[in-house]
Computed example of a mutant assay.
Amino acid sequence: MLITKQTCIFLAGHKGMVGSAVHRALRAGGYENIVAISSSELDLRNQSQVQSFFNEYSPEVVIDAAARVGGILANRDYPYQFLMDNMMIQNNLIDASLKSGVEKFIFLGSSCIYPKHAPQPLKEEYLLSGSLEETNEWYALAKIAGVKACEAIRKQYGKEYVSLMPTNLYGPHDNFDLQTSHVLPAMIRKFHEAKVKGEFGEIKVSEPVELWGSGNPLREFLHVDDLASAVVFALENTLPESLYNVGTGKDLSIKDLALMVQRLTAHQGPIHFDPTKPDGTPRKLLDVSRLSNAGWKAEIELEEGIRRTYEWYVENIGRVKEVKL
């Protein structure tokens, strides 16, 4: 499909962390015909509303950045919502795209689609080769269904429907609610608040920070602006496969991550890990060679990315995103 700066692109989920980053990247790339609509105007879980929207706007490309997301605690406490809401959102978008003649669809998921004990680093072909991690299986199951729907359309109809599976994301407009957020934004908030509380004491020592798990699991992190650049890359290029990992290809332990966040936030108190709380998957590192061989690589180093995110968080305290379930 020939993509021009006037191609009509429907960006679903444009107000979220991922969607807003993609929107910025598209604007920076000179794309002039971006359709973005809020959830108050269009409920993506409602099939008839979605189809009516497609009938009215006739998008040529669809980028699906819409999803219900959250960390271990949120996934544990709300399994039905994580499964059903995500399936309804993506199924409605994919089906309406097919029925409306959309030639290019970019589906965004998560590396949690891969089995808990799959070999590391995780290759795209490991999908459905084993059991999922229990703490996020409901979200993962929904995303797997989306990946397979795009693959099926690609095989049956020959359309450019591609799935991008990013590793753990972070960046501006992240969710910083301690009950529903992922590990990195939660750390940023915890260390910052512990530091600020300590500044009001006579001794000026940061309060301790309590973190879930042992600190031993290894995780990979990708700045959301890098994911956005991968989306633009997928938009502007014809990719031969239906599924691509998006990451840095580098990981570190949760303990080392905590020490990095502590240093960047200038927190000076102790860190306490609670090994009675779940760790999640022991290691989750993506093999990013498929997308790398296609011509795309991440550019933002983790320390610089966390520094930027922390600066954004401090500047926006009081209006940062907090997702209540």
Rank of each mutant, 00 (worst) to 15 (best):
V246N: 06
L235H: 09
R263S: 14
L243E: 05
V183C: 06
F233G: 00
T265M: 08
P185D: 04
W212D: 08
R219S: 03
M187I: 06
Q262H: 04
A228I: 09
P185L: 13
T180N: 04
V231L: 03
L235D: 09
S242E: 15
G215F: 03
Q179C: 07
L259H: 11
V261L: 12
G201S: 15
K250T: 15
P172L: 02
G201Y: 13
K190Y: 00
Y244W: 12
T238R: 09
V209C: 06
G247H: 04
D226V: 01
Q179E: 11
S253N: 04
V231W: 03
L264W: 09
A194N: 00
G215T: 08
V261K: 05
L178Q: 14
D256S: 10
I203D: 14
A230P: 02
E241T: 00
V246M: 03
K195A: 00
K190N: 04
V232L: 12
V224N: 13
K255V: 01
E199F: 04
L239R: 00
P240K: 14
D256R: 07
V209H: 05
G215N: 01
N216R: 13
V224I: 11
V205S: 03
N175T: 09
E210A: 13
H192Y: 15
R263N: 11
P185N: 08
G247M: 04
V232Y: 10
V183S: 10
A234Q: 09
H223S: 07
L211P: 02
R263L: 14
G198W: 09
T248I: 08
L218F: 03
D226S: 02
P185V: 11
K195W: 13
G247L: 01
K197L: 14
M260L: 15
N245F: 07
N175Y: 14
E220H: 07
G249W: 13
G198C: 10
L243F: 15
R189P: 01
E199Y: 10
S206H: 01
K250M: 14
L218N: 04
S206N: 05
L184D: 12
S214H: 05
L235Y: 09
